[in-house]
Computed example of a mutant assay.
Amino acid sequence: MSSERGRSRSDRPLSVVVAGGGTAGHIEPALAVADAVTRLDPDARVTALGTTRGLETDLVPERGYPLELIPPVPLPRKPGLELAKTPARLLHAVSATRSVLSSVGADVVIGFGGYVSLPAYVAAQTHLRGRRRLPIVIHEANASAGIANKVGARVADRVMAAVAGSGLDAEVVGIPVRGVIAELDRDALRAKARHYFGLDEEAPTLLVFGGSQGARRLNDAVAGAAGALGAAGIGVLHAYGPKNSIDPRSPEGAPPYRGVGYLKRMDLAYAAADLVICRSGAMTVAEVSATGLPAVYVPLPHGNGEQRLNALPVVEAGGGLLVDDADLTVDWVSREVPALLGDPDRLAAMSAAATGTGHRDAAATVARAALDLAAEFRAGAHRGRLRGAFRSPGSDARR
């Protein structure tokens, strides 16, 4: 930092802080936007904000970004002791976040929801630099906005969402996905991808994945149908989760059924496939639709029905099928998957519909908004937005 102190603030690279820790559904969009920021402004510095509880401690360093850790602030939905502890925890986390914002000379904060975001929003809104508050950009990936983003949206300068009806007054831009996925040419990579995984280069290919916790139903149904799939001449690439196992029994002479614990090259997995069976987390739906792959979405049966809502826009457009968890059986897979993969016209129509719902430019849209606000802030043109939850007595509520 010593070399930075010797330069005027206007000469320093723009400093962008992304806050999206916890689950991959928060972290992956944050990292996709971080990548887009560095593509749009190679000199910009991106710092990720996280906690020790989330996957960011692994994912962020792998992508080459500095990670600053703050205390987590869980947001209990029910009254009780944990809820009573929330104000003190929030104050502690906000104080730590202010220190991070000062140390990196932040010019804008981009939040994606979760444990990390609420302290980031409060810290940015109350972090004064030259009597100006840091600008805030929010992106909501889920079909139903979480508490942190609902609160933060009251003071944010730009609010964006993956889909309409999230509960926020937001611009719909889709979900930011990695550049390697957004720019994927499946046709050009198909032969390479199938060779990489040891798949039959000509056979119609099914891709199956469900994460580590959500894979069991998918594993049982698809591996149990290996005989029927093989008899129909279908190859399978099946990511069954690092804590699980499968025992598919394919007939002699059938295309390969490749089982792997984890897919390190999702771009090649998408390129190898003609059809996907997967869960419908927001990030999964975004990536699959961005690549134009037809999909069978099987929402997790627990929670608030969010996964079903994530898949509905694609399904209603004709880009996928929605199958209840209880209905995904060996018999269903044995009957429906060969029929679908044996109908090229239907697959092509589904692929076109999925492509039409995908948002390949979402990461760049969010990144550009943040960089514009950061440049305004640096130039002194941005006065901050002070209204709603964080307004102080007698404050100016102008943007």
Results as ranks from 00 to 15, higher is better:
Asp396Glu: 04
Val137Glu: 08
Thr47Gly: 05
Arg45Gly: 04
Pro299Val: 05
Ala148Cys: 05
Arg12Pro: 01
Glu140Gln: 15
Ala353Lys: 04
Phe112Trp: 11
Gly198Glu: 11
Glu316His: 14
Ala93Asp: 12
Asn142Pro: 10
Glu140Thr: 13
Leu263Tyr: 03
Ala226Met: 13
Arg7Asp: 00
Asp361Cys: 04
Val172Asp: 09
Arg133His: 05
Arg5Leu: 14
Ala269Pro: 07
Leu168Val: 10
Ser99Cys: 00
Ser102Gly: 12
Ala141Cys: 13
Leu75Asp: 07
Gly303Ser: 07
His26Met: 15
Glu287Ser: 13
Gln307Ser: 11
Gly318Phe: 06
Pro13Gln: 09
Leu237Gln: 01
Glu306Arg: 02
Gly235Asn: 00
Ala225Thr: 14
Asp343Arg: 10
Glu56Met: 09
Leu207Glu: 03
Lys243Asp: 11
His238Asp: 10
Val288Phe: 03
Ala24Leu: 13
Gly320Arg: 09
Gly320Pro: 12
Gly179Ser: 14
Pro66Ala: 10
Leu321Thr: 02
Asp325Pro: 06
Gly233Arg: 03
Ala232Val: 13
Val222Gly: 15
Ala123Thr: 07
Arg308Ala: 15
Tyr121Gly: 06
Ala93Arg: 11
Leu206Gln: 03
Val104Asn: 08
Val100Cys: 04
Ala363His: 10
Val33Tyr: 10
Ser212Gln: 06
Pro204Trp: 00
Asp41Ser: 15
Ala161Gly: 10
Arg9Ser: 06
Pro338Asp: 10
Leu293Cys: 07
Gly146Asp: 08
Ser280Met: 08
Gly342Asn: 14
Val100Lys: 12
Ser280Cys: 12
Ala123Ser: 11
Ala124Leu: 04
Ile234Arg: 03
Gln125Gly: 14
Val16Cys: 04
Lys150Met: 14
Gly233Lys: 06
Ala145Pro: 08
Ala84Met: 15
Gln213Pro: 01
Pro255Met: 04
Ala164Arg: 13
Ser117Ile: 10
Met160Asp: 03
Pro393Cys: 11
Thr57Trp: 00
Gly235Val: 01
Ser395Phe: 03
Ala24Gly: 15
Leu128Phe: 08
Lys150Thr: 11
Arg129Asn: 02
Ala123Ile: 12
Asp187Trp: 01
Ala254Thr: 09
Ala164Leu: 02
Val155Lys: 01
Val151Arg: 03
Leu321Gln: 13
Arg39Ala: 11
Glu171Pro: 02
Ala182Asp: 07
Ile70Cys: 06
Ala162Val: 12
Leu40His: 04
Met266Ala: 09
Ala182Thr: 11
Tyr297Ser: 05
Leu328Ala: 12
Leu206Glu: 04
Ala44Phe: 04
Gly261Cys: 07
Glu171Met: 07
Gly227Ser: 11
Asp247Tyr: 05
His302Asp: 06
Trp332Ser: 08
Leu40Ile: 11
Pro204Glu: 01
Ile136Asn: 02
